[in-house]
Design a protein around this nucleic acid. Structure first.
Lengths: 248, 248
DNA sequence: CCACATCCTGACACAGGTGTCAGCTTGTCC
DNA sequence: GGACAAGCTGACACCTGTGTCAGGATGTGG
């Protein structure tokens, strides 16, 4: 949560950074940045958008006028479920929202009875290592988001990319000084096979090492990664890009 | 490897699908699709681009004229290391290649002595769940890729997105019929905490369950995912998007 | 040459995970 | 009401991983 506030504090500079580009295509962009709440995002999600089976609890546009933090979380939750297309919706018309499947998880029966909270566009960006970024734009007034969306869908993606890349660059610079532990070749190899479900003995056979040596490397890797066990080691290593990169 | 060939077989249709868009911006696109070789991509990488510390072994442009498969692998290897910017290089000028850090891992001393293998553009796309896609364009003749790149960098991204999204949609449709095992709420919760390095006992305390129940859910999850242990369960679940999604 | 990092191997006690068996409640759908 | 899915709990033998100890083999750079 501190991290979230920290990210939010950086937003003004980022907003300024993309403002020019945003103005160029006629949209007042709001840069969104939030932590989804890993490793237990569902606990939050259950408590907020899902616990009360109401349409408004998955509606970032509604939340935007009530709780900005919740709005950002919903924006990212939405973005995380989108792949290629930016997302838009205007009052009543659900746009590409259906593809997020978020609506399937709540009670939509009162969707048409909810008041009009304006129009919105969410441009999702997926980055290496499972990171998700988004540009979230929201308007209380009906401005006819559909033609704007159709015209500038491509630019939205590029804006989101630049925004998130800029933000990450600024954020990673101080952070890399503290946690840039590098893993040795053997440690990475052992981790990869461990991630594949192999036991220490099997890994030893595969890599022509003794069981003791495999355990030695995995323990070293866990220590470097600050993990308590092999499961967490693999998770952290995957987050750092050492294991699990696959082509689409 | 069979999977790789299978993907490659789908390429002609995809190439045709984006050909029109590609022509529209004046670039002859080649759609690339390859498997990076999980869970042990390094074994391949060590054997090919890294074992011989030579510049050409990380050069997709060179490989394109020798071994198309290798070229695709290198294109994806490059794309996986790029975040926001599409990649380009022309003879001698390394463009944004430096940012991939691939050059740091080979001997670049003979880089300037290598013959001219033309110009190339690689447009990376990162998708949810750590998937990587790329549009790989390569020309033997010097066509002045730099201004083209500067002018169409944004369009390249959109093309790559559409390409990969189209391909995934086509590929996932038959596949989802076989492996769309859904995990229950409890199973996902247990997996998430297990991924965080918690023991069964700790998870039981967190979720107010007995140790037996936690193990029950984790075993069910492993069975559904076809995993042999908790480590692989977490890896597969992460690949399916159940755990590990984090905002940028 | 020495220091250092990486890699390699072995041993052991103990905590924790795996696999298989069994039985229970709760809610939903036909 | 009956069938079914999801969730919950317990027990047990056995295998695997963790934590800590010890030592030796390479290769690199000062």
């Amino acid at each position: 949560m501190d991290h979230q506030r920290e990210c939010w504090a950086e937003m003004p500079a980022l907003i300024a950074a993309v403002q020019a580009a945003g103005d160029a295509i006629g949209l007042p962009f709001v840069a969104a940045q939030a932590d989804l709440g890993d490793p237990e995002p569902m606990s939050d999600a259950e408590g907020r958008p899902y616990a009360e089976t109401s349409f408004r609890w998955v509606d970032p546009s509604y939340a935007y006028w009530r709780d900005r933090k919740l709005a950002l979380q919903l924006a990212f939750l939405t973005a995380a479920r989108l792949v290629a297309e930016p997302f838009y919706y205007s009052d009543g018309r659900l746009g590409t929202w259906r593809s997020t499947r978020l609506l399937d998880e709540v009670d939509c029966s009162q969707a048409k009875n909810t008041p009009n909270f304006g129009e919105a566009i969410i441009a999702p960006v997926h980055l290496p290592r499972g990171l998700v970024g988004a540009v979230f734009w929201c308007s209380r007034e009906p401005v006819g988001v559909e033609p704007l969306f159709a015209k500038h869908a491509g630019d939205l993606h590029n804006l989101a990319l630049k925004l998130v890349a800029t933000h990450n660059e600024a954020r990673d610079r101080p952070r890399n000084a503290t946690v840039p532990q590098t893993l040795t070749r053997r440690e990475v190899q052992c981790l990869r096979w461990a991630a594949a479900g192999k036991t220490d003995g099997e890994i030893g056979i595969i890599l022509s090492l003794s069981v003791s040596t495999v355990r030695f490397h995995l323990r070293n890797a866990a220590a470097k990664l600050g993990a308590t066990g092999r499961a967490q080691s693999i998770q952290i290593a995957a987050g750092l890009g050492f294991v699990g990169a696959r082509a689409a």
